[in-house]
């Protein structure tokens, strides 16, 4: 494992910790899209099926279990916690899951490395992860008031895939020119979706202003 990959994983983990911290400490999930969080549960469930079939390392297994556990608990808080669920912006979080999930699944059926259940579901999870942030970005654009924790959460979540992109370039040159089109292109799409958000996040940080996305 190289330093970019590790930095990417740590950024991803930190983003989730910040989100859980926000939910637990402030008992509020304002500005967080339940749609996006549910899509992440689907992403992790379909990607980590290999937990049962293949052992890579202690680190790998632990991180997979942490991502599964935390994403499920975030959804649980937002749907069922009696205080937190009342702060959910249901009326603004209107993006439909299946607009993203169905095309991703069809694409995974068409474009994959190997036609097996595990491989197609893994590919589906890669495609779905690339676009799962869309409901969250739409919700942010509708929110007049984005709190710091939510802003930092989305920033770190975007930064994680950008660091993975650097990791893939590094691996290409250090590991026998390993070519992996599916995650590369999906990761590129995923990072590009954040470009606009990154721009306003950095701008508000430099000018010491409150983050607000133009409608």
């Amino acid at each position: 494992m190289n330093v970019f990959r590790l930095a990417g994983d740590m950024t991803h983990l930190l983003s989730i910790i910040i989100l859980l911290l926000k939910i637990r400490a402030t008992k509020s999930c304002t500005g967080i899209s339940l749609k996006t969080q549910e899509l992440y549960v689907i992403v992790f469930l379909t990607r980590y099926l290999d937990l049962f079939t293949k052992y890579i390392s202690f680190y790998n297994t632990t991180m997979k279990l942490v991502f599964l556990g935390t994403s499920i608990s975030i959804v649980w808080y937002m749907r069922y916690h009696k205080v937190v669920k009342q702060t959910y912006n249901k009326d603004q979080d209107t993006f439909r899951h299946y607009f993203l999930a169905i095309p991703c699944f069809l694409l995974a059926l068409l474009i994959h490395h190997e036609f097996t259940v595990i491989e197609v579901l893994w590919t589906f999870s890669i495609y779905l992860e690339a676009v799962a942030i869309l409901p969250q970005l739409v919700l942010l654009q509708r929110s007049r008031n984005i709190d710091n924790l939510t802003g930092n959460y989305v920033f770190l979540l975007g930064a994680y895939r950008a660091l993975y992109l650097v990791n893939w370039v590094y691996r290409y040159f250090t590991e026998n020119h390993l070519v992996r089109w599916i995650p590369w292109l999906s990761g590129l799409v995923q990072t590009t979706l954040y470009a606009d958000f990154f721009y306003y996040y950095i701008k508000s940080w430099k000018n010491n202003e409150k983050l607000q996305l133009p409608a």
Binding site: I56, S57, H113, H177, L178, V179, R180, P183
Partner: peptide, 10 residues
């Protein structure tokens, strides 16, 4: 080139 299905990432 063939894509290697290395699944060592998260």
């Amino acid at each position: 080139p063939e894509e290697k299905a290395t699944k060592d990432e998260l």
